[in-house]
């Protein structure tokens, strides 16, 4: 690898800029964790002590706990669904050719480029025009539409890197199409499936622009609950929620690193 050009004054400048950028990147994450332990309602510097009040407040708030339950329930429904739909779809998109493939692919991936608000408002307007009570089903459907492209993109990238001759070799040695898929393709898709799951799961938990349209009081999800709380109250309870999410993402990164190296799984 070519690393010599990060030497000298030029190298120091670049490294310094990168260091500043990294501080900028980490600042809100570190700060929100610190703030969640603040003993005071408003930010004070230096911190006046250490308190678990906001964490207790968060975990004992029925609104936040219901929202967390809804969020995780929805993410746990949407993630496997997007794999079950996304894996065969990616396989068809990558491995076979058929009329209208490009158009279908464009449509399925369109929520990636069409702003979330437009997707959310369209889904809401269609579902209510159809006289549907949105509920958990509508929320999951909306999130599935929105998150499926993330899954398909990660899976297709993985599939494109696989040599189709390996599947032919399996057929040649006597494996039928299903056997080939389960014994040969699926094991090689491990990293794509992992990446897809992480993207979809995180997106389902974090998404605001779809959820704000499709969740109601009984299906309120965490981001919406947090937004409403921030509007109405002025205390670090949301920082406690943020801390929980950050801890979760650290665990997720550690898990990815252990399974396959997180750098590899996060290629967009």
């Amino acid at each position: 690898m070519f690393r010599r050009d990060l030497e000298g004054r030029f190298g120091i400048t670049v490294s310094l800029l990168a260091a500043v950028a990294t501080v900028f990147l980490l600042l809100p994450v570190l700060f929100v964790v610190l703030h969640s332990f603040s003993p005071t309602r408003y930010f004070q510097w230096p911190p006046q002590g250490f308190s678990l009040e906001w964490h207790l407040n968060f975990y004992s708030s029925s609104m936040f706990m219901d929202a967390a339950k809804n969020s995780f329930l929805m993410a746990l429904i949407v993630t496997p669904l997007s794999l079950v739909i996304g894996i065969p779809a990616s396989y068809a998109l990558v491995r076979s050719s058929f009329k209208g493939k490009a158009v279908i692919q464009q449509i399925i991936l369109s929520p990636l480029i069409i702003p979330g608000v437009v997707t959310g408002v369209s889904l809401l307007s269609l579902l209510s025009a159809a006289g549907m009570n949105i509920g958990l089903f509508g929320l999951c459907l909306g999130m599935l539409v929105f998150a499926l492209p993330f899954a398909i993109r990660a899976l297709s990238a993985n599939l494109l890197g696989l040599d189709p001759r390996i599947e032919e070799a399996a057929r040649n040695l006597g494996a039928g199409p299903f056997r080939t898929f389960f014994a040969i393709v699926l094991p090689q898709l491990k990293s794509g499936i992992l990446a897809a799951s992480v993207f979809v799961f995180v997106e389902a938990l974090d998404n605001f622009s779809i959820a704000v349209f499709l969740s109601n009081d009984s299906t309120k999800v965490l981001p919406v609950a947090a937004y409403q709380y921030i509007k109405d109250f002025d205390d670090p309870t949301v920082a406690a929620m943020a801390t929980a999410l950050i801890v979760m993402s650290i665990i997720l990164v550690a898990f990815l690193e252990k399974v396959m190296g997180f750098q590899k799984s996060l290629r967009l």
Partner: peptide, 26 residues
């Protein structure tokens, strides 16, 4: 490099709401 990647990954996965709130206070 790994450290910066780690910072990016954790920030990325911690979500938009977390970061919006943090900036609001910061």
């Amino acid at each position: 490099g790994n450290l910066i990647m780690l910072a990016i990954a954790v920030t990325f996965l911690s979500g938009g709401v977390t970061r919006a709130y943090s900036w609001l206070i910061l």
